[in-house]
Write a protein that binds this DNA or RNA. Structure first.
Lengths: 241, 241
DNA sequence: CAGTACACGTGACGC
DNA sequence: TGCGTCACGTGTACT
């Protein structure tokens, strides 16, 4: 009971439909006040007393909120058995319905009501969180939020996939070059420590000489890397091989 | 009318709550059959005839589905004016309520009913799509689906951010070279289209000549890139600059 | 059996 | 003005 009261107070303090009431002209204030009044009454008096008060005052407003609290609705449930279709399944349920209906007159509905209210609040909170982290929201619509979320997630997945395969594609040359270097013999490493780069730059272009130990596939990976850097290779002569 | 009937047929053909009926023991078949029967009746007869049929048969099942179709509910709306709170705003709404109530007796409720049903279907479809693309779903719960979706999106964003900053860290030299190339003037691009690469490979090393248009910082980024590739630069001569 | 979750219809409200 | 959307309470099935 403590928790439910706390939930009620919390729900009472936080305004409802915050995203829509900001743009509304106060017309939905009626619904808000209705809910607030209901919450206040539900908090300060017991559900049984609430039902008594409903019938004592004969208030149509509470009847619209608690229509099942009326005792003059027996035909709604009893006549349901007379429905021809699915009568076999229905006969079994009629007993339970009467039982739940008899229980409904002693505080049962408030439990389910509070649970449902709590559930709705949770769902709306999740929806608000979802709406807050999705950058592109076309409309404040509930369905549109989910749609935009789906689109955003697909876009994120696509970006991740593209980045991953680009990472592997770009890193492939590095790795192949690294592996080629790691597979070098020590004596070849000694050779590699000798001077091997020579860059000559003219007014219109640049000429780079690289002298290193011969290795199968090394030239290919080097040219691939240079192309991956955006440099168009026009002349590529491999000499002394 | 054509579209609504098509929607009804489509809704009739597609099973409801497909995700839960697979794991249920067939107990929800009753609800499904109820909806299907309602859809069939709504499809083959007009709403007005449907209301007539309801009253002619006095069927409790349809009363539970169309409770507002009863004419013996007048106190529900009329007594709402007697509610003391917010009487000023309420007086203005009472006129509209009476008008809508009088219209409700001639096929108006079915419109709203169908719209609401369509909206629920759309929302559930979006929810199913969301559940289908989220890999980790702890429970089939509606709230949990949104929660898992939020967590998954946060995880995706985290992964994208990490990959991006790693990309910028590793590919800094590449990007700087790319940017330098992208900032080239068109005439320089023309120069770049001329032959510029020359690779000579000997027994011990390889010599590459690159001839390109001069650009501030280009040689530096090139050397950085070559060093990033693991090639130790021993001789780097920039000529004609 | 109490709790939970969902679908349903309906009133209210905004565009 | 009608149509779309939402919150609400309730019935019902599942655990």
């Amino acid at each position: 009971m403590e928790l439910s009261q706390h939930g009620l107070l919390e729900e009472l303090l936080t305004p409802r439909r915050d995203s829509r009431t900001t743009s509304s002209n106060g017309g939905s204030l009626l619904q808000l006040m209705k809910t607030l009044a209901l919450n206040v009454l539900s908090t300060i008096i017991s559900p049984t007393l609430l039902l008594r008060r409903i019938h004592g005052a004969g208030d149509g407003f509470f009847d619209s909120i608690f229509p099942a609290a009326h005792e003059d609705y027996p035909s709604m449930v009893d006549d349901e058995d007379q429905f021809g279709l699915l009568s076999t399944d229905h006969q079994q349920h009629s007993l339970e319905e009467i039982k739940t209906k008899s229980k409904r007159l002693e505080g049962q509905p408030s439990k389910n009501l509070m649970a449902e209210r709590r559930r709705r609040k949770r769902l709306n909170d999740r929806l608000s969180m979802l709406r807050s982290i999705v950058p592109k929201i076309s409309k404040m619509d509930r369905t549109s939020i989910l749609g935009d979320t789906i689109d955003y997630m697909k876009e994120l997945l696509e970006r991740i996939k593209k980045m991953q395969e680009e990472e592997t594609k770009v890193g492939f040359n590095h790795l192949s070059l690294m592996n080629n270097m790691k597979e070098l013999k020590p004596n070849e490493m000694m050779v590699r420590s000798s001077p091997k780069f020579e860059v000559k730059r003219s007014e219109t272009d640049t000429r780079i000489d690289i002298r290193c130990a011969t290795k199968p596939g090394l030239l290919l990976s080097t040219v691939n890397t240079l192309e991956a850097l955006g440099l168009e290779i026009q002349v590529c002569d491999k000499l002394f091989q």
